[in-house]
Design a protein around this nucleic acid. Structure first.
Lengths: 258, 258
DNA sequence: TAATAAATGTCGTTT
DNA sequence: AAACGACGTTTATTA
């Protein structure tokens, strides 16, 4: 079996055979077809006739893409089961997801292109400038918050829960830091408040709250002030740069040690 | 030009020519290829070598799918610009989005399948059992809330902001309704509270708050009680059924009138 | 399993 | 352009 077996305008028999083969052997399947789609589960939907691109993945995820738009018009997350049957003399792919008891049915009216793919992908994916990167950068260089800021939560989550960073300021005041990778909203300030409130410390007034974000939204700024919290304007990109620099330094250290 | 021009293992010259042709003529483009992907924008990412499915749409959206997972590993929303160039003797597709100043670059190391598609899709898509359907069902049949409930806001955004439904109960008490299509959270109760607080009415205690949802989460129930609000357990599916019935009745009415 | 928050979230709507 | 909330959100993490 080759890496890619593709057919233009396959016969019904071919479609059924290839689909079943591909599903059974955990191949990626690509279908370009005029089709009808019905979905029923948490909601329900009907999509009338049209030509779309369909992807079936061996992990049980399914995607139906119209000629435009970023999101799939219909889909099924991983863990779904594929079944190929015939209805009205057409091939129907049924994608069933037990977890939510959801069914997606794709009736293939005319298959334009069918490809059974045996893809090899062991590539490594790395994302930078995520919220987690911001957290790590601050832990690595606490002066981003202010001089002599000392995080408590370093490697392990010393205090469990959802607090991004907990620490002490130069005067020993307990400080809660909430990090956002995009413009902060009022909701984010409330989140910070919630965490501070959740700390079972008697003198809550003595706890500092700092919201870290690349920008403050209108509502957030007011609320921040009224609650007596602070903010630090820091972008995810600069945090990423700090981490990169650190890695480079580690490498150089290693080089000289050798 | 046919609806689907597909080639297995095209030459570099073919790839460049077909891609440029497809982009220029606003075709959908399907590429199965061993590739490298770099993204830089709001965040940044690197994806090392591997075989993936790539979709380029004429509206400027791009999707890169690995052999597994529901979401694309890299992407670009609509409005992006495609450019085809060569680097390291490989074809590179550059997808630039001005709005966020984001760049996605896909280096094609070995194209397994390339298809230029001229898809026709005028199909109608209908989604049922959305939150909007729930809203409409309640407006159509206010007794879902309680007997003699009278909605004021028939359209939307008639009053302050984002209140789903505003109305009067049988005793003329102002009532704010917040609708959720899935299990209600604490956050949802706070949302309801916010809307009630935002109503500049003197006697806020006299306003009723009702959270409509198919189920109540743990935290939400407690908070609901402590704030003195109420709830109605209603599923999006039953609301959808109510709307369907209404439509059927309208059709029957029309039939008899004729 | 339920709850909670992140996401390059995206997308629509209203101010 | 900014704010706000829905989404069949999905996904990962934690209690």
């Amino acid at each position: 079996m080759t890496k890619c077996e593709s057919i233009n305008y396959p016969s019904i028999e071919d479609i059924i055979f290839k689909l079943r083969y591909g599903i059974k052997n955990r191949r990626n399947i690509l279908i370009v077809s005029n089709c009808l789609v019905n979905y029923k589960g948490r909601a329900s939907s009907k999509l009338s006739e049209g030509e779309r691109i369909i992807i079936l993945k061996p992990d049980g995820s399914a995607l139906i893409h119209r000629p435009k738009d970023y999101p799939p018009v219909n889909w099924q997350p991983p863990g779904s089961l594929f079944r190929v049957k015939t209805t009205n003399q057409n091939v129907v792919v049924r994608v069933f997801r037990k977890k939510e008891n959801e069914v997606l049915e794709i009736e293939l009216l005319e298959v334009i292109l069918l490809a059974i793919l045996d893809l090899k992908d062991n590539g490594e994916f790395n994302l930078f400038a995520s919220e987690k990167d911001m957290q790590e950068a601050i832990l690595l260089q606490p002066s981003l918050i202010e001089e002599k800021f000392r995080p408590i939560t370093s490697e392990r989550h010393v205090l469990p829960g959802f607090i991004d960073i907990l620490g002490y300021d130069k005067d020993g005041r307990l400080t809660v830091i909430e990090i956002k990778r995009k413009k902060a909203t009022k909701q984010n300030v409330l989140q910070l408040k919630k965490y501070i409130d959740s700390l079972n410390v008697e003198e809550k007034r003595n706890i500092r709250g700092i919201l870290v974000a690349p920008e403050l939204g209108k509502g957030s700024q007011e609320l921040l002030l009224s609650l007596g919290y602070e903010s630090r304007i820091i972008s995810p990109q600069e945090c990423s740069a700090i981490l990169n620099k650190q890695k480079t330094n580690t490498k150089i250290d290693y080089f000289f040690k050798k």
